[in-house]
Write a protein that binds this DNA or RNA. Structure first.
Lengths: 348, 348
DNA sequence: TGGTTTATGGTAACCGTTTGCCACGATCCG
DNA sequence: CGGATCGTGGCAAACGGTTACCATAAACCA
């Protein structure tokens, strides 16, 4: 049986109160008693029971994180940043994957509240159908939305400014000479999908790009492949294909390559998120980088602020994303020397 | 203030014991009282405080998961499976990322024990340097190693049989006509790295492949790129490059493509794990598939068994992995028709 | 009919910490 | 020197459920 604080107190010949104070440092104890308690704790390999502590202090040092799908490569890097942020505050992460299902999401939120988590970070899977659960939860525990968000403005949010991101992309392909462009994205059930779709529409008209009907599926490479087939079946390709995220773009690139369509020579392709494999695709992918570390940092800051001021005004923080230009929108002669062989090969 | 069970009991005009029994179902109560308690709980929107329950019952319904790096794409799919398994048992997942550092790992294990998790799943980051912490932890709480494991045999383990996996790979490239092969893997500080390296050595001699000194770095695409440069700088390429995981292989493919080396015509390349992007690389990657779902299922089963029999004999379960043959080891003329354009392009 | 078993309700201890409150002695101050 | 202040220690009440144990009444049995 592990030692309890009573055992420590007994061995140190002090009361449990003194032992508790000595160990937690929440009130001074005499040097003599401090020494004895520390010593006793060490001798017994005492480890405080965090569940008991949580119950009494009404603080669990636990944060819940709800994301739509951990296997979407955008999220692992985000999770990594968040987890790292948290551990520096001795908090731990309860991870929930909603599988893109608002009902699962709701259950998970409830479970987190029941567990008395100190705060919740969520990337809601559906802009509308997640709304009720998010609101209900936010009323019970500090909550910050990350990246995706529900429509309406009733909670803190941290993410990137998709409008700016899309403007960077559209401006870039316009400057690269594109006159026509098509958007391949996800059906706008979540905020990322919606905002990027809308931003593409407004920005492309702003930069004088002709667009055709966007192709909307989901945020997967499989949909990118599918979309490429649709585009290839059409009369002629647009100058640029702007994708709603990197997975779609990568699927698309893959299918274009198989079909002999040359990127960027025949068509420019862009992604969004800058997941790890964006750099590794062939050709490498021009995309918009989301600053995970900064997002994680700010998310925790927002949450912490809300601990202190539960009823303070809601904040929305949009970070400015960064355009990462790679081969999928760059003329081959701009590539570094060791790319020569590649360019020859892929140009045939 | 949320309602407590006392509030429910008062409203239902029964004792807290009866309320508790009615709600938990751990002992029968009369129909009348059951009805009243359920009603009162509903009226008050009562939700039991799980922390209090955990303290009393000495069960937290929480499982800790420690992995080396969530941004290594092998792990998210595994985490997804595990999380899904757990939620069906109303348990939740505390996720810890050791960042490949045994000292961080040790701290995380301790933190999980302090939190009184019911069990721990871990993929230890270092075969040797993780050993002490894993052993110490396993003595305190049910623990199962997943995928990677420490040397020695003192805990349950579930993973794939790397020897079989590597045999499938080596056999496959040998049958595809390779006479020489080189292994590009990770410095064998963790068990996966070690077992695959050893298995490659023994299997390739078994199948009569000539091998040269393995190239060892880490399990990243960056190392794959680096390794490709090393290989390209050498006199001539081997017939096959067998990689320790998919990330390495993808980096390697990328660099080969840039350098004009044709895969599979000039050299065969294989990966290991079958991460999502293995299918999307160009060319798509022949690799060894790990059955995440089955691993997650068995991991939970092992843990559950150990709850019941804390001192039962240790089990090691090796699942047989599956070879997934794709373009990186397949002659072009075996590709489907729509790949024609691609093959022309990439062959120059 | 008396004794035993069964069903169900309540009381209060318990899980392991933390902390409000009081006590007591030492120090300080006018 | 008496009273206020400060520093430190301990008692015991929380935190919110769960459950061992006992009580009571009904059912059952010989």
């Amino acid at each position: 049986m592990p030692a309890t604080i009573r055992d420590v107190a007994a061995r140190a010949r002090v009361s449990v109160a003194t032992a508790s104070r000595a160990l937690s440092g929440r009130r001074r104890v005499s040097d003599e008693n401090l020494r004895r308690v520390i010593g006793a704790a060490a001798e017994l390999s005492y480890r405080p029971n965090l569940v008991a502590s949580s119950l009494r202090r009404q603080v669990t040092n636990t944060i819940g994180l709800v994301i739509p799908q951990i296997s979407n490569p955008f999220f692992p890097t985000l999770v990594e940043s968040i987890e790292w942020q948290l551990q520096s505050t001795t908090r731990q992460l309860l991870l929930c994957d909603s599988r893109g299902d608002p009902e699962v999401e709701q259950l998970r939120l409830q479970a987190l509240v029941d567990r008395q988590v100190d705060g919740i970070m969520i990337s809601p899977c559906d802009a509308l159908r997640s709304a009720d659960a998010v609101h209900t939860t936010a009323r019970q525990v500090p909550l910050v939305q990350i990246d995706r968000r529900i429509t309406g403005d009733a909670t803190d949010w941290i993410g990137v400014d998709d409008e700016v991101g899309m403007r960077l992309v559209v401006e870039h392909v316009a400057l690269a000479g594109a006159r026509t462009a098509v958007f391949v994205g996800s059906v706008p059930t979540n905020s990322s999908a919606l905002l990027r779709l809308e931003a593409f529409a407004s920005e492309s008209s702003g930069f004088g790009l002709k667009t055709s009907e966007p192709l909307l599926g989901d945020f997967t490479a499989a949909w990118g492949i599918e979309a490429a087939r649709v585009l290839l079946a059409g009369r002629h390709l647009p100058d640029a294909v702007v994708c709603g995220n990197d997975l779609i773009a990568i699927g698309l690139l893959r299918q274009f390559l198989l079909a002999g369509v040359r990127v960027p020579d025949d068509v420019l392709v862009t992604g969004y998120d800058d997941i790890t494999s964006a750099e590794l695709s062939a050709p490498s992918l021009t995309t918009v980088r989301q600053p995970h570390d900064a997002i994680a940092f700010e998310a925790l800051r927002l949450l912490t602020e809300r601990f202190d001021r539960p009823d303070g005004p809601y904040q929305r923080i949009s970070m400015t994303p960064e355009l990462v230009v790679r081969e999928s929108t760059t003329h081959i002669d701009l590539l570094p020397p060791n790319a020569d062989a590649f360019s020859r090969a892929s140009r045939q």
